[in-house]
Amino acid sequence: MMNTRIKRPRIHLGAWGAPLGIIGAVIALAWIVVAFLAPVIAPHDPLAQDLPRLQAPGGDTILGTDSLGRDVFSRLISGAGVTIPLALLLVVLSVLIGTILGSIAGFFGRWVDETIMRITDLVMAFPTVILAMVIAAALGASLLNAVYAALIVSWPSYARLTRGLVLGLRSSNYVVSGRLLGFSPWRSLWRDIAPNIIGPILVLASLDIGTAILLLSGLSFLGLGAKPPTAEWGSMVSDAIGNFDQWWLGVFPGLAILTVVVAFNFVGDALRDALDPKSATLRGGGPTL
């Protein structure tokens, strides 16, 4: 009879990875909850200009008010509800587009590969933020256009990554065996390749959420994204520029961006360590005596 051992957990977290990853996950999760519950939990109407202007934090308005008499705290919460869901959407769409194109390029090769890769080269040749700015400006400043612009500059890295992963697996014995058994290329991609490349893609995606947030709030900061009076962190920071004495106007949105991005980065790092290729499925086995 076959010896069976208790399955070793596939995920082994390194010494530092675990605590940071968990902290990151908690913070990220908290922010996501805030984002989706924003309308409910904001104490004041984020758009209402009915409070005393430029009030320092304290009393009724724990984070102060801005130059138009709006509650910073409520705007912060509302802003979360704007940026975070859009950033998540952005990442999901980039992953979808990028991985599908990358898989096709990697598996089918030849002119399909050439075409797709030259397009990714073209897009990646430009500095991401600048290209996004140009596209957003061309489309006209709006949050939705900012998302389109960000999407255009974000999908290529997934395409590249996926193509590399697919190329690596395409000639694996088990994939070839599947083809010999009569699998169509699509079946091979779906059954044999996709489940085995999810790891690195997931890691990239989770690290990318932070980038997406920075990109979106950055575009808004520059006036190419969210339009006033929408509460958005980037534009809130932008508003704060004229009022440096009122430190709370810039610091809190800045801190919000910082904490969300860092939190997602910790999660991404922990995921990457956990899915360490040495212990991952493909390698199989380990050293022998």
Partner: peptide
Amino acid sequence: FQDPNSSLNPR
């Protein structure tokens, strides 16, 4: 094939 470790889909 020769290599048993890559002859089966790990997932």
